[in-house]
Amino acid sequence: MVRLSIARAKSVTMEMPEKYAQLALKNKSGEKSKNEVTPFLKEKIMRTLTWREYSVKDVKISKYTKIENNILYIDEELAGRAVNINPIVKKVTLRVIKPGERNVFVNSIMDIIPVAAKVEGKIGEGVTHFLGGMVVFLTGTDEEGRQISEFGSSHGILNEKVAFGMPGTPGNREIILNIDVVIEKGTGMERRGPLAAHQVCDWILDHIRQELKKLPPQEAIYVQEFKDVRREGRPKVLIVKELGGQGAMHEKIIMPSEPGGVRGGRSIIDLGNVPVILSPNEVRDGGIHSVT
């Protein structure tokens, strides 16, 4: 009928009437065709997460905490009150870094945290409000001025110390709320030191979250639904994330009460470092907090 033999070729296109093509394929596959049939895709939806995104165009240190007309106001007194949360933390400073002002000095960056709050349900399902346009940088030193870091420190000029635009860092347009902490001398290399810094930071963020929860659904600039689905018949894949579990900047908080928070979660160290399964929605909804 048709015979074609090619020894070495690049981008070969063959055209023929459909009936011949069908015939040719049928003859070639023969017994194989039974295995190659794609199984009918059955998707089972396990849970749904509604993600409402809000945006701020400015962040201001003020006399009260409020989100109004796309501006986030943060009570300056929160910094002073925050030291009562954990006695290891001696001082907290709030600072706003605008996108064009990243040529400033920052202490060792301990974490980059987005602000998000649960409105309905627990982490991984229900409704989450996410505050776009801004991100939180937690930085810190100890009382003697020693950077909270271990092997390599990220203190220095912000612009040079962060690869912006990566999955774990903000883009060029985000406003940075810098929460800088000073912890008890010598505790930077102990588990309790960095953990205290994260707790205090989370306490401040809780105040912003309270305001974020109040925003009406119609003011959201973007709404998205995330679904945990299982696809019957497809190859089963497991993602494994091996994360630090040695204490003092090698710790994770698993499944906190608020997205990306600390409160209500369990430390991976206290969980014995054994594998714990999270659903994709739970990871998306901030089920892992890095105490890096």
Binding site: R230, R231, E232, G233, R234, P235, K236, V237, L238, I239, V240, K241, E242, L243, G244, G245, Q246, H250, K252, I254, I268, I269, L271, G272, N273, V274, P275, V276, I277, L278, S279, P280, E282, V283, I288
Partner: peptide, 11 residues
């Protein structure tokens, strides 16, 4: 693919 989940394991 059928993603069964994400296993978080400490080091």
């Amino acid at each position: 693919l059928d993603l069964v989940g994400i296993a978080v394991v400490g080091s």
